[in-house]
Design a binder for these strands. Structure first.
Lengths: 222, 222
DNA sequence: CCGTGTGTCGTTGCATACAACGTCGGAAGG
DNA sequence: CCTTCCGACGTTGTATGCAACGACACACGG
């Protein structure tokens, strides 16, 4: 078993991502410690890391508050994702280690297999496959810092939930773009990979903004 | 006075930047605690944050080791800086709050005033002015995440010491680029600002790589 | 001589205890 | 009635103690 604070970090991050702790909510150390079955010490260390990665804000003598996302924040995050994901895709195209390509193809197949379903479970499967795809690409890029930064940008709550905002055509296009990226990277064409990724992120941004103006962002699919 | 762990964080970060703790060295919690006059608890929290920001690596049950920089790391950092600094410059050009421009101009003047000196103190003054210039630009961009990421990329040890590698012409060009950026931002020309910043970072990269192949990186100017 | 096992030591990991800060309530004064 | 002060409470901040893990050295067996 890993260290207690790492367990706490992973658990809290997951709960922040899935909405267990809503934005702005006050996270009490003792309560979290009780939930996780450890003392406050490892919880505090996990909170420090989550603070550094932007998942929450620790105010001295007041504690931790789950991050809130303003429209300005969202715009910035999509901008940075567009920059960094495109950079990663470019590097992945010419990376020496080609093994992650298999993971990316597997993620494409899994998503496409789930697509006809259209229910909540299918969206969940597609979302998981999407995360696997991007993580494999980051790993393939060999850019460890870029990868770490993207991990803290792209796995935030509304990014994960953004899939609920895609319509059937949008999902189809998104999965097609994944396929196209695999082709571009397999061909070693860095410019192609970069362009497809840039389009992919911008499309996601458009879907998100459209959903936001309709007040549907982050809602449950039900 | 701020919290003890924040003090510890700032002190340790400064020492990691100025070479007090050389790359690869093993940082013992108890020793650091004694040096800083606090207990191990705040030291541990500071180490966790420094780990998250890439200043050091904490290995479970083994402790913290000051980060080491491979040529691959350096290349990645310059790439990311080029991407993100250019992005920040672009945003700064059209930012509503123009006040940071004054700070940037002040930094230009301070650097130019110190330039004729040419000794160690002058380089120190130019380095400080350089940091102020870039920080003001990041602030002006209004991109809080971008700013946080750049802060953890650009203030790393060899970035700060890179100034020792510039010759007189290179320094002159670097300061001229700062002036040009002020002009571009004052004019509200985002493309211009982006282009100058991209050139600025790439020039720094070239100087660094040249120094590296001559084995002079990170050495004292003496 | 080399590989392996084991014990000791140093260091980190975690739990607990106490101190300090901030907040919120109520009561007194205007 | 509103404002202000103050005290109690809850929460976080820090220190300390003990448990556990890993590295190293030495002795033992092959």
């Amino acid at each position: 078993m890993a260290t207690a604070w790492e367990q706490a970090y992973l658990t809290l991050r997951r709960r922040l991502a899935d909405g267990t702790y809503p934005p702005g909510s006050h996270l009490r150390e003792e309560e979290l410690a009780a939930q996780l079955g450890v003392s406050r010490t490892p919880v505090r260390e996990a909170l420090r890391r989550l603070d550094a990665e932007g998942w929450l804000r620790v105010v001295p003598n007041q504690g931790a508050f789950a991050a809130e996302w303003s429209p300005h924040d969202i715009e910035e995050i999509f901008d940075l994702r567009a920059l960094l994901e495109a950079h990663a895709a470019e590097r992945a195209a010419t990376a020496p280690d080609r093994r992650p390509l298999a993971t990316m193809e597997e993620a494409c197949e899994a998503a496409e297999a789930a697509l006809p379903g259209g229910d909540v479970a299918a969206l969940e499967a597609i979302s998981d496959a999407n995360v696997r795809f991007h993580q494999a690409l980051w790993e393939m890029s060999g850019q460890t810092r870029c990868r770490a930064i993207l991990a803290s940008l792209a796995v935030s709550p509304m990014m994960l939930r953004n899939f609920r905002n895609f319509d059937a055509a949008g999902l189809r296009r998104s999965l097609d773009q994944h396929r196209e990226m695999v082709a571009a990277i397999a061909a070693g064409n860095a410019a192609w990979a970069r362009a497809v990724m840039a389009a992919h992120v911008q499309a996601g941004r458009a879907v998100f903004l459209a959903a936001m103006t309709h007040g549907r962002v982050g809602r449950q699919a039900a």
